[in-house]
């Protein structure tokens, strides 16, 4: 279980993370979404005690990370697959971590197998690894201490489609056995397939937090007309809240019948009328990517 309470990080006048709170329950995968520069990595580093927060705090299983006596046995962390000494072999990298954590050396070979790095890859120096192989090594590193919590920053980066599918299976399986997973991504579609909950962050603030069903469920009705401007005016005139989408369709906060009758009364031709499929979140996310991406 991970609890984040009012985490805030300021760098001079710039607020990188602004009063972020969320919880990850055991048995679930939480997708931590946001465009690049939204504050995902800073939040995760604060959870892991690597960055001191300006305000607020975070706990893992009720304990602040820095108070965990042997954190590797509780929490598997993969924050940057490239943060390994390039001069060590994959096997040596895991061997060192096993020694620190006091884990049986035998697990090293088993973990390399589990993440799909064969003995030949294990003997190679990390310098020669592709990003995908580093991600696999990083996941092996995270799983080495047999933790109950996983914190992964952009683990799908550099993985091929088969690798992404494999990663999802591993994480789903981990959560189904009672583990807690927090994984970040800047791609909604990437985590949609595996996450139970979604926390969306933009400009350092949480802008959406809920179960995937809640956030992706049809919020309103998607409607597209031959004359979008007139349709929008008609709907607004009938007291229906309307938001635009990038492809010119509208999302109306009313059922299909109300929208249809309003359009008919105004004599407008409809081209599309159906429940909105998570367009709200997709829309929100696109807006964040468009505006929040730059600092």
């Amino acid at each position: 279980m991970i609890s984040v309470e009012h985490l805030t990080k300021r760098y001079g006048p710039h607020t990188a993370v602004d009063d972020v709170s969320f919880h990850c329950e055991a048995g679930t995968v939480t997708g931590f979404l946001g465009p690049n520069g939204a504050g995902k990595s800073t939040t995760m580093r604060m959870i892991c005690g690597l960055t001191p927060p300006t305000g607020g705090g975070a706990t893992v299983d009720g304990v602040p990370y820095r108070r965990l006596p042997n954190p590797g046995r509780r929490v598997g962390v993969l924050l940057d697959a490239s943060a390994q000494h390039p001069g060590r072999t994959g096997r040596e990298t895991l061997g060192l971590a096993a020694q620190v954590m006091g884990v049986d050396r035998g697990r090293v070979g088993a973990l390399l197998d589990r993440v799909g790095l064969d003995s030949k890859a294990g003997r190679k120096r990390v310098r020669q690894y592709s990003l995908g192989m580093r991600q696999r090594l990083g996941l092996a590193h995270a799983l080495l201490g047999d933790p109950r919590v996983l914190i992964l920053d952009e683990p799908a980066n550099g993985l091929d489609p088969e690798g992404i599918f494999w990663m999802r299976t591993v994480l789903r399986d981990f959560a189904d056995r009672g583990g807690t997973v927090l994984l970040s991504s800047h791609l909604l579609r990437e985590v949609e397939a595996v996450a139970d909950r979604l926390v969306v962050i933009g400009g350092g603030r949480v802008v959406a937090d809920g179960t995937k069903q809640e956030l992706l469920a049809g919020t309103g009705t998607r409607v597209r007309g031959l004359e979008p401007d007139k349709l929008e005016r008609a709907l607004t005139g009938a007291g229906v809240t309307v938001t635009g989408t990038p492809d010119g369709a509208l999302v109306a906060q009313a059922d299909a019948e109300t929208v249809g009758r309003t359009a008919a009364a105004a004599g407008l031709v409809l081209l599309e009328l159906r429940p909105a499929d998570g367009a709200g979140l997709e829309q929100l996310f696109l807006e964040l990517t468009a505006n929040g991406g730059t600092r």
Binding site: G49, T54, T59, D61, V63, P64, R67, P69
Partner: peptide, 25 residues
């Protein structure tokens, strides 16, 4: 540090499993 400051505010810090606890000497 703020992280430790909030830590002291946490009322009961549960003791981790003894087997996994072993702080590396």
């Amino acid at each position: 540090m703020t992280a430790t400051a909030t830590a002291t505010a946490t009322p009961a810090v549960p003791t981790p499993r003894a087997s996994a606890a072993g702080r590396p000497s």
